[in-house]
């Protein structure tokens, strides 16, 4: 793909990138703490990952290899257009292979394959404030974070267990980062939460509309909120992938024919392909 001229490298001007990098440095210095930043208009509507895109634009170097996933898949419209955007504006190489990427921008998933110290994971975040449903006032949530007053969030979990016998949060399950800040991990499935903990890769979170950046530095403790007698459990559908037979990966249920036939398949398409290339076969394959 050829780069287009008339834009700065990776679209954003250098001054904006510096501003975002400063916010990123602060975010890395205070794991899990939300840093305000002057979010720019991007040639995409909010909800298309403008926060993630701005972070990616600010950290991309000419030698980086970019992977973009949406719900684990490299081939959705959103993922394809973001990948193309950076291929055009930065001329960087792109890949769908998790192990070949140096920067992975993601919406709603963490890849199944373990990430390394040489990689950065950039999350698109619609709502950075984990307390927003409990406390509508921004000033008050800031105060709650400042004083680490998170009792209200535990009340929410208490209510769930009382009503449903378990915590009824399956996405964006709140976590404590570095034993200090309560953080929204973005709408990844709770299944992915354990991967946040002690991850060797740097994790960066960008919320474009809400103008917030936060981060989890490599090898940081990240704990999903729970109770001693109701410990956090990462749920997944009790099936094996129909295509590659994986029985530990996160699965999507897809409709496969007009007769309403259904199939459970890995949501991480690269993981599934890699397994199939290595000879693994699922029951529907």
């Amino acid at each position: 793909m050829t780069t287009i001229s008339g834009y700065n490298f990776a679209y954003l001007d250098e001054q904006t990138k510096r501003m975002i990098r400063r916010a990123l440095l602060k975010a890395v210095a205070i794991p899990g703490h939300q840093i305000p930043f002057g979010s720019r208009e991007m040639p995409l509507p909010y909800g298309w990952g403008t926060g993630g895109i701005q972070i990616t634009a600010a950290i991309l170097g000419a030698d980086d290899v970019l992977k973009v996933i949406d719900q684990g898949a490299d081939d959705t419209t959103n993922a394809v257009s973001i990948r193309r955007f950076f291929a055009k504006t930065a001329g960087v190489a792109t890949t769908t292979r998790t192990d070949a990427a140096t920067v992975i921008q993601t919406r709603h998933r963490i890849p199944e394959a373990p990430l390394t110290e040489n990689q950065i994971l950039v999350y698109q975040v619609p709502q950075p404030e984990p307390l927003v449903k409990l406390e509508p006032s921004r000033a008050e949530t800031r105060r709650m974070h400042a004083l680490a007053e998170y009792g209200a969030m535990h009340v929410r979990l208490y209510e769930d267990i009382t009503r449903y016998g378990q915590v009824a949060i399956s996405y964006d399950y709140p976590v404590m980062v570095n034993d200090r800040y309560l953080m929204a991990p973005s709408p990844i499935p709770a299944f992915d939460n354990p991967k946040l903990h002690q991850m060797p890769a740097l994790q960066l979170f960008g919320a474009g509309r809400e103008k917030r950046i936060y981060a989890i530095p490599p090898y940081t403790n990240v704990r999903s909120l729970d109770f001693e007698d109701h410990p956090f459990r990462a749920g997944r559908a009790p099936h094996a992938c129909g295509l590659c037979g994986a029985d530990t990966s996160y699965l999507d249920e897809v409709v496969v024919d007009n007769a309403g036939g259904r199939l459970f398949v890995c949501s991480d398409t690269d993981y599934c392909e890699t397994r199939r290339d290595a000879g693994h076969v699922g029951e529907a394959a």
Binding site: E149, Y150, G151, A152, H154, V155, Y158, E159, I161, T162, D226, F227, E228, D229, H230
Partner: peptide, 27 residues
Amino acid sequence: LRMGVSAGGNVGERLMAQGLRHYGSIR
């Protein structure tokens, strides 16, 4: 009070704010 939270959750809140993390004991 938190009017959208059960009586038990209302009473338990201060315990949770103090760091108690055992559902059964809070209840």
